Amino acid sequence: MFDEIGRIARDVAHAGGWLPPWAVSLLALTAAVALALLVHRLLFRAMSRLVRDQDLFWRSLVARTSGPVRLGVITFALSIASELAPLSAGERSVLRHILLVGFIGLLGWGTLTALHIWTTIYLRRFKLDSQDNLLARKHVTQTRILRRVAGTLIITITVGAAMMTFSGVRQYGVSLLASAGAAGLVAGLALQPLLKNIFAGIQLAMTQPIRLDDAVIVEGEWGNVEEITSTYVVVRLWDLRRMVLPLTYFLEKPFQNWTRDSSALIGAVMIYLDYSVPVEEMRAKLEEVATSSPNWDGKVVALQVTDFRDSVMEVRMLISASDASRAFNLRCEVRETMIAWLQAEHPYALPRRRAEIAGLPRKAFWQGEREHERQAAE
């Protein structure tokens, strides 16, 4: 087909003599690009119809590969048309250079697309919305961080390879490497933040002190890890605010990770009551509350008297849940239910300040009160 386009253009130019060579070349290159776009459009429509009834993965796969395929088809068409068009040696050299840069860009773009497809296929086996999602969070976090690092390296290599095709840039790069010394030191200092974050991302992916959806306490705030990029981490706080922290924060500063080894948590509820509270009845009521709650995972429920103070005693209630949000809701539920039960059934057990006079007859007590009132009136 490209041979036909070139033959027709040459026949028209030689037969009529009214088209200059540059116009014939422009016509051939334009026809090649138009034909390439037409072929891509027909191919893309056919593939879209083929995966129309498939799941979201196949539809997104076709959509994501549309751009690289279009660039590849245009590059291939222009490479054939450049051999058929009546170009001068200089014009042919410039066009080949442009095609070489386009081919390098196509390789980089195709590699990024293949990397995205591979990670998507790999992560399809893991579900973050499952109840026990520790393994899924581990693999998703590791894969996403490594994908961003690999993507940065691919883009850097692609841009570097494209720039090295230009003689001026190539000579500058050789002279820069030869000088090493001060230029290398300046470049190293300039790239220090970027390199620091890249290595921090690799270390986070390997050691995984945090993972996606981990419940953490950072800077005195409680939240969940929402996003991990190649340079920063986004923590979604309990009130829907977002805290953005650099990657190096989680390698250099202490923080709490409530779901490091397991998403299950034990929640503690502290309450201060009078010494007269019936502990056994309270323990039975706590077990009843936990059993009837959908947030309890059926593992831990306990009530203990953990401290004595001047006028109250400290009672600690422990209940477990499958994740941090359920543990928080269960703790609130235990507080509300237990205080309502104490108010209704055992109000005397609530904290109160009191004074007791023991050993004084009732009659003498009231006589003392009247005498005190009479003196106060005088």
Rank of each mutant, 00 (worst) to 15 (best):
31 A>M: 10
36 A>V: 02
47 M>V: 12
19 L>T: 02
36 A>H: 02
28 A>V: 15
35 L>C: 09
53 D>M: 07
28 A>R: 03
32 A>P: 04
29 L>D: 01
37 L>V: 10
42 L>M: 13
35 L>Y: 08
32 A>T: 00
25 S>H: 00
44 F>A: 13
39 V>K: 07
25 S>T: 08
23 A>L: 15
22 W>Y: 13
38 L>T: 13
24 V>G: 03
18 W>T: 06
28 A>K: 02
23 A>N: 08
39 V>D: 04
36 A>C: 01
26 L>C: 06
26 L>A: 14
15 A>S: 14
32 A>V: 04
15 A>N: 11
33 V>E: 01
46 A>V: 11
47 M>K: 07
42 L>G: 08
35 L>I: 08
34 A>P: 03
24 V>A: 06
35 L>R: 07
21 P>L: 02
27 L>N: 02
28 A>L: 12
19 L>H: 00
45 R>A: 12
19 L>F: 05
44 F>G: 09
24 V>P: 03
43 L>D: 11
32 A>M: 01
30 T>P: 06
17 G>I: 01
40 H>C: 07
23 A>Y: 07
31 A>F: 04
34 A>V: 14
21 P>S: 06
53 D>F: 14
31 A>H: 01
53 D>W: 10
18 W>A: 14
49 R>G: 12
50 L>K: 06
35 L>W: 08
52 R>C: 06
25 S>I: 03
15 A>T: 14
22 W>Q: 14
48 S>N: 13
43 L>C: 08
20 P>I: 02
45 R>V: 11
50 L>V: 07
48 S>K: 15
50 L>M: 12
29 L>A: 11
22 W>H: 13
25 S>L: 05
20 P>G: 01
16 G>L: 01
34 A>M: 08
26 L>M: 10
44 F>S: 10
48 S>V: 15
24 V>R: 00
16 G>P: 00
51 V>G: 05
27 L>Y: 09
30 T>R: 05
37 L>K: 04
26 L>T: 12
28 A>N: 12
52 R>Y: 07
38 L>P: 06
16 G>I: 00
51 V>N: 00
38 L>E: 14
17 G>Q: 02
40 H>V: 09
36 A>F: 00
28 A>Q: 13
29 L>N: 04
47 M>Q: 12
19 L>W: 03
44 F>K: 09
21 P>H: 00
52 R>S: 11
22 W>V: 14
45 R>N: 11
19 L>C: 04
51 V>S: 02
